[in-house]
Design a protein around this nucleic acid. Structure first.
Lengths: 133, 133
DNA sequence: CTGCCACTTCAAGTCAACTTGAGGTCAAGC
DNA sequence: GCTTGACCTCAAGTTGACTTGAAGTGGCAG
């Protein structure tokens, strides 16, 4: 089970064959060769694609993801850049926590209007700050 | 400073006038009236838009955001739905933490290939699990 | 050796989320 | 009262991320 047909990769990752072809085209992943016309991938393709899915779900564009991990799975970016990306993600995590708290608050707060609740107003101030920045 | 012209809202939120018009069209925000042809908004529009920006940055579609908060700023969704959304965001936070850790690891790990590092392999297993689910 | 079928290419289509352009309107300042 | 400029409408264009369709190819089971 060293080398995988594109269809095997699709099955293991849950990503459509056409999508894998697209990722290959744009250089986001790299096939290790062909069997006839058929693209073949190494087993590392499976986790590469898992990382891509993770990044996508996090709201990063394919370009941004390509800027984090290269097609062959190696990374040659300077450390400060990588840490900068990580910091960005940390900011996003904090944003998500604000959103989650806003949602949970709305679900539970008994105030007649959320605008009148001091806790909600505080959440909104945070949202405002993040929006502007 | 009760009522704001669309241009004022654009300036305060950093969102383009054309975008605000678009949000109005699709019912994501609601103008409180017109001055001539000009749309006018209440001050609550500013934080509504901040919440929208937050949701977008978090990778939610405008449709999904519309499902969390309504145009008039009120929420009439049942609690379980709201908590479900919040849970979704929690999952996403955990995903982001995996991605961040992967990035920080890659920046620091001295192993010749990340594939050989047990810590990285563990991160990948988590990524794989999330990808499939 | 034949047929099948999962793959191939390449072009075109789709969807979300906007932006742009052309031509029009109207409140405010001079 | 006329100009100006920020707004208006409506249609069309753009970008990212794919998907779909038509026409072709090639390894493998029978």
């Amino acid at each position: 089970m060293e080398i995988l047909d594109i269809g095997d990769v699709a099955e293991r990752t849950g990503v459509a064959v056409s999508t894998l072809r697209y990722y290959d085209e744009i250089g986001l992943i790299a096939s290790v060769g062909r069997r006839g016309l058929r693209r073949q991938f190494g087993p590392e393709a499976v986790w590469q694609i898992a990382l891509i899915a993770l990044g996508k779900k996090a709201g990063f564009s394919l370009d941004e993801i390509a800027g984090m991990f290269r097609a062959d799975g190696t990374v040659d970016l300077p450390r400060p850049v990588l840490h900068g990306r990580a910091d960005e993600i940390d900011r996003q995590i904090r944003d998500l926590m604000v959103l989650r708290d806003a949602l949970r608050h709305v679900a539970e707060c008994p105030a007649p209007s959320h605008l009148e609740c001091p806790r909600f107003r505080k959440l909104l101030r945070v949202a405002g700050r993040r929006g502007k920045a």
